[in-house]
Design a protein around this nucleic acid. Structure first.
Lengths: 209, 209
DNA sequence: GTCTATACAGGGATAGAC
DNA sequence: GTCTATCCCTGTATAGAC
């Protein structure tokens, strides 16, 4: 089917390049790390392919050996950060509902990365943003699933009332963290902690007496 | 203080141009309307200044007589849409909490405009996006204020429990509508209505018996 | 296998003619 | 008030050096 004169790069199921040799994946990781640095310092608007390449000491054309498009590079940056955040969250607190801890995942992110996320969500809502749309559909489904698991455990622990649908609650929790962190990043006067605590109180069973 | 050889355009407190002559404001409104059309058909990424100008039959340079930058034009589009949505919401239901109705304001928006909003929020979070940041800080403060008024009325009507802080609840409501509509726009499988109803139930006073 | 050099189409911003 | 012409920057694409 395919001549073997150009088998160095293949495209995987999700469209991500699959590479065979260690140097390739290592270089790819380095590019991701440097890109994250550039976002943190200059924001993502200043993070042109040329700027990222310059920060590494490489031409912008070289970046395309590892990421077919700018969209793909940016999505991989977000994926990497999500992966890191998930690991940290597990280390930190595997107990209870832990909404406040989940919030850290949002707030601890550099504003530049939150800006990048919003920008890519925008792209996902547009024609031509299929790759981003797939990414975020999957990401939000995953977040809801994590929230559902936390809520289930929390209900067993007696801190979540028994008369509500947990799948709807999961979407609600994710939406709240999303929305509150947006408001807070724009205006640090917003008391995001009060919002989180309120939601936890609302989800808790009413006191019996 | 100022020579009167260039008084046709002044800059107001919020940075928005203030114009004296009817033709100017009419033309400005036309540009906004056509821009909204282009967003609806091609999305905001395809809505270059040249594309918008072409839809009107003028060059892109001419647009700058009415909007100093692309950012300003886009913010004015969002402002115009918010204004329309607020009027419609007041016509529709001045009663109770009405979260479901508020949701319509979000869902009824063309996806292209929601994408534009996310993109401008991203810009507001970055260095250099001062104009957008001012816009969204003001916008979210306004939304929270509207939510607070609704919640106050709803509490008087007995549909909101008495033991919660309404200002925190207002931020929570706005965050929920924001976050749920984002999830829904990306994936219509998400049952946004269930989330809204759940929040209303959680905010309602527990049944006495 | 990896990277440089280069070209191209399109973007926003801007100066000056009419 | 609107135009044309121009500037510099962007993402993308390809050819070929090593």
């Amino acid at each position: 089917m395919t001549s073997d004169s150009e088998v160095s790069v293949r495209t995987g199921a999700a469209g991500a390049p699959v590479r065979r040799y260690p140097k390739g994946v290592k270089r790819r990781q380095e590019i991701l790390d440097r890109a994250i640095e550039v976002f943190a310092t200059e924001g993502f608007e200043g993070a042109s392919l040329r700027a990222i390449g310059e920060a590494i000491g490489v031409s912008h054309a070289a970046l395309r050996r590892y990421f077919e498009t700018r969209e793909e590079l940016f999505l991989e940056v977000l994926r990497e950060k999500d992966r890191q955040a998930l690991l940290e969250a597990h280390e930190r607190s595997p107990h209870g509902l832990g909404l406040a801890e989940s919030l850290e995942d949002y707030a601890s992110r550099v504003p530049g990365l939150m800006a990048l996320r919003h920008s890519m969500v925008a792209r996902a809502m547009e024609h031509g943003g299929e790759q981003s749309r797939v990414f975020f559909i999957d990401r939000y489904a995953s977040l809801r699933d994590q929230a559902l698991q936390s809520l289930t455990l929390a209900r067993e622990a007696g801190v979540v009332r028994a008369d509500i649908a947990l799948d709807a609650a999961a979407a609600l929790v994710v939406a709240t963290l999303d929305g509150l962190s947006t408001q807070w990043l724009l205006d640090s006067e917003v008391d995001i902690h009060a919002g989180i605590v309120l939601l936890e109180d609302l989800l808790a069973p009413p006191p019996q007496h």
